[in-house]
Computed example of a mutant assay.
Amino acid sequence: MAGQAMSKQGAMAAALVAVLFSLSSASPVQWGQLDPHFYEHSCPQAQQIVASIVGKAHYQDPRMAASLLRLHFHDCFVKGCDASLLLDSSGSIVSEKRSNPNRDSARGFEVVDEIKAALEAACPRTVSCADILALAARDSTVMTGGPGWIVPLGRRDSLGASVQGSNNDIPAPNNTLPTIITKFKLQGLDIVDLVALLGSHTIGDSRCTSFRQRLYNQTGNGLPDRTLDVSYAAELRPRCPRSGGDQNLFFLDPVTPFKFDNQYYKNLLAYRGLLSSDEVLLTDSPATAELVRLYAANQDIFFQHFAQSIVKMGNISPLTGVNGEIRKNCRRVNHS
């Protein structure tokens, strides 16, 4: 049985690597100062190493794909895509892992550590932690059935972190739609990017504490959210009571929780979006609602827009050239 499991795991990783090689052979694309061929000579096996370890992690824990994808989002929205999220507290650095969006829910750091150790063994001080996050996000999406894309590379790692930025800049589950739109706009991302990127909630989980108010007190009057399907609310309440059970996990997409598809948008149309920040895409803006309907009806267009938007997100304020550094250990800056 163990041999069969390893064989299946290896086949999955090999299939992912084949997809990545087909992508890397596409025509060159450049985004700002980033280049998908950045490691072509300095570490040609970099993408294969990342894909192999992501494949193993996904096989061992089906939740890990969503966790790795989320790390890329939470990193890029704070100071740009510079791996600041990965830093542990040390010296003058207060880790972003302590912030509200990350404290109880960010995970996958050990997988990043494993990837970094393998890359350091193959190509010392060459591949940045920020690029690891970008590649792992792509590989996690492909591994769960989603689209692939060419990842522009060449990011360098930050020398500091920002807990304040993490608390303020990352969209929260209870933010209003105008607030979420503003937070995306400040990163150079538009409404198409917003609706497409939130489609990543087609995989992953959320904690009871992130949506409890929808079940019991959405507007402060003690009543449940009128935009939440009554039967769905009844399914959620036993494991998400008025008090207690804060850390209980719920699928963001209970229909196909481990498959990257367009079911998330179909759930929104049925008023079965788990988070308030999900359902408002349908209920609070004709422009975002039109995109929800488009993606629910056409998965190919969703995949195309998601791939374009996550590449755009991955280009938020990268450190390049002589800025930042290439960390040897993703958890700490090199001089510490």
Rank of each mutant, 00 (worst) to 15 (best):
G55C: 03
N102G: 02
A289Q: 01
P318Q: 02
V230H: 10
Q187Y: 01
R207T: 09
A106G: 03
G154K: 07
K116W: 08
A117G: 04
W149K: 02
V163F: 02
A65R: 11
S42C: 05
R138T: 03
F73P: 02
S158V: 04
C208A: 15
A172H: 11
A46W: 08
G10Q: 13
S200P: 00
S277Y: 00
H58D: 09
A172Q: 15
N168R: 14
L23H: 07
H37G: 11
D75T: 04
D229T: 00
D253F: 02
G324H: 06
A46I: 01
P173L: 07
Y59I: 01
G145N: 05
R98F: 09
R226N: 09
L119M: 11
I93H: 12
I326R: 12
S24Q: 15
S200L: 11
A134K: 06
K116Y: 09
L86R: 04
D113N: 13
A65N: 15
S99G: 06
R103P: 01
R214N: 04
A46F: 09
T144A: 11
F21A: 15
L274G: 00
R214E: 06
P171F: 07
E235I: 04
S128G: 02
L294D: 01
S67F: 12
L275K: 01
L252T: 09
R155W: 04
R293G: 02
A117M: 13
G204M: 05
D35V: 03
C81K: 08
S140N: 03
S317C: 02
R207Y: 10
N168E: 15
V163K: 07
L69D: 13
P257E: 13
W31V: 15
S158I: 05
A46Y: 04
A121R: 14
L177Q: 03
L291H: 06
A65P: 08
Q47D: 12
N315H: 10
A15N: 13
G148D: 01
G321Q: 08
N323H: 13
S162M: 03
N174Q: 14
K266H: 14
L281H: 00
Q247A: 15
G324D: 05
R327N: 12
H201A: 07
Q304A: 14
R63F: 12
F251M: 06
L153Q: 11
T219K: 14
C240I: 07
V54L: 07
R242S: 09
L291S: 06
R331Q: 13
P318D: 07
D261Y: 07
N174V: 09
V29K: 10
T144M: 07
F211S: 05
S336H: 14
S166Q: 06
N248H: 11
F73I: 08
A296E: 01
R237N: 07
S231K: 11
G80V: 09
N102T: 02
L236N: 03
F306K: 01
R293V: 01
L189C: 05
I150V: 15
H72V: 08
L197S: 08
D300N: 13
I310F: 05
A270I: 00
P257S: 12
T202I: 00
P28T: 04
A51P: 12
N174P: 03
L153H: 02
A5F: 14
G165A: 07
A172E: 12
L249C: 05
L274D: 03
K259C: 14
E40T: 13
L268A: 00
